[in-house]
Write a protein that binds this DNA or RNA. Sequence first.
DNA 1: TAATTGGTTAGCCATGTAGCTAACTATAGG
DNA 2: CCTATAGTTAGCTACATGGCTAACCAATTA
Lengths: 135, 135
Amino acid sequence: MANQLSHLDQVFAALADPTRRAIVMRLCAGEASVGELAEPFEMALPSFMKHIHVLELSGLVQSEKSGRVRTCRLSPEALVGAEDWFQHQRAIWEARLDRFEAYVIKLKKERAAAKRPSKATDKTTNKPGKRKGTE
Amino acid sequence: MANQLSHLDQVFAALADPTRRAIVMRLCAGEASVGELAEPFEMALPSFMKHIHVLELSGLVQSEKSGRVRTCRLSPEALVGAEDWFQHQRAIWEARLDRFEAYVIKLKKERAAAKRPSKATDKTTNKPGKRKGTE
DNA sequence: TAATTGGTTAGCCATGTAGCTAACTATAGG
DNA sequence: CCTATAGTTAGCTACATGGCTAACCAATTA
């Protein structure tokens, strides 16, 4: 688990660079050689290779050399692991928001009941990010 | 859009550090002062403050000072933006995998039909990451 | 076998990042 | 008013990162 966490370090660090994100996006559409991947970038090959290397270390990309051409492909497990982290965090703060919302609603109800025992339907609590299945 | 992308740089870079990830996780559970946040870490305050600053620049965290205590809270929009990036990439490569799988199945069907017109139920195509609703 | 192509290694440089200490500001409490 | 508390600013060091050039394999291909 701690191992997995330090792996997240590398995955997020890898994705923090626009060049590397572009490479990942490109590889989502299918495997490609280093040369093909490098072509859209105005960058010397050795510099570009460093990015590939970082992506490989992070586990996001695998590559294999046959003949003199190295073919790269995405290995989605790392990507999925990072996405899981987000979903986990989101679950936590959405749970908290739900509790908070419930609390606010309860509060409003009580205040309404105390002051004016009618018309307790207020809509001030718009949660910012309720998206898809919170699970 | 390009603006949003360069913002992703900062968000991912912010999350590439275990200290900062821990801060974000902590803030998912509710807001806290700088001192409270810093307490679990064996780190000098100025060093810790740098992490807070990075998180603020990335848009993941907002803070506000009242009196002599600065209270930090999560601002989930940035987190959600990063999560969206993952989901978008996943949608792309899952679509590709689906296409590939369909192709393989078609291929197998054709081969089976050509060689032995029976027993065409093979299960070599296990997609690694079919998770939840692809949308 | 000689030349080209595709990648790799080595090494340099500028900048950024993570940590520290020391000294400072400003509020809260006595 | 004095002291302790909570952050903040300034400035330092060490190391990581992103880029470059130059030179170097190793497969194709002519």
